[in-house]
Amino acid sequence: MAALIEVLDGGLATTVQDAGRPSHRRFGVALSGALDPALFACANALVGNAPKAAALELRLAGPRLRVAGGRVRVALAGAAKGEVMCAVSRRLTIAPWQSVTLEEGDELKIGAVRGGVAYLAFSGGIATPPLLGSRATHLRAGMGGLAGRALAPCDRLPVGAAEVQGPERRQAAFLHESGPIRLLPGPQDDNFVPEALRALVEEEFIVSRDADRMGLRLQGPRLEHDPRFGDEIVSDGVAPGAIQVPPDGQPILLLPDCQTVGGYPKIATAIRADLPRLAHLLPGERLRFAFATRAEAVAALRAQQARLAAWIDGIAPHVPAGAIDEEALYSANLISGTLYDGAEGDES
């Protein structure tokens, strides 16, 4: 059954996102899509969706939503939590990494999003009309998602049809690797003096306030262009992860809503496996870079995909605290004679 979600409060920058809009970059259309594809996949898996179903990307402060029709299972992935004011006078806490089923009339409020980005998935996926094969929102172009913008009060979000049945599901938190963001030099590392490449990996950078889905402006050591080549190039292709250096020497780390071409030399590019971590960097946070080899980059991506697949395989049925699970009651009584309400999440 399909559900309908009404937006009571959009939160600070809540957008519909999916795996992005590839194959249109030659027409100037940005890739877009979830900033953290790993957490996005986790949220979808918890509600039983296909990996690329559209979900809500939450940043800073989450939204307040009401189920205006139907029944829907939701799950949060990331450092956020919320609560449900149920239509039938219940109050539930929503923790990340576990699903919960909402009935018509239930209100859901997600609080602060720590760590930069979290995802809220709905069983059946968000069913706003796709544009060029994707539901991802690109705010700058006003494209995709819900009218090309962040959620606002009175918006109505259609959700795809899905059977909501069986026990809730949960898993342990999916944690990203730590350590420096790994880079491959290029495409224009030759346009910089050798000290710039050294400073890039030896010194620390701070995320400035100028940070959105297009990119993060960083503050740190000035990365000097080689005066023989100047500080601009005839525009060429860019990609998320690329580190552009404008004439002021302060790097800009590009994210999925970045333009498709650019005229600043790119000293290095973050490897694919480390892109999900970039969205968690908040203004004022420090970061370090390290160079990697192409083989290390591919191995890191393969390992990340394997870890994500294992995480999804490990999703287990779960009976939430306070809920009455007749099956558990029955089996517990038969075995031990004591009542057990499954509050501790016994998975047996």
């Binding site: 590839p22 249109h24 005839v234 060429d236 292709g237 860019v238 990609a239 694919r272 980059a297 991506l301």
Partner: peptide, 23 residues
């Protein structure tokens, strides 16, 4: 190969690094 973007003077080819032919 996923897509390519021609520019004034170059062409950027985006691909899946886990594809068997990426190497």
């Amino acid at each position: 190969v996923i897509e390519w973007v021609p520019t004034f003077r170059s062409c950027t080819v985006h691909f899946d690094p886990l594809s068997p032919l990426a190497d």
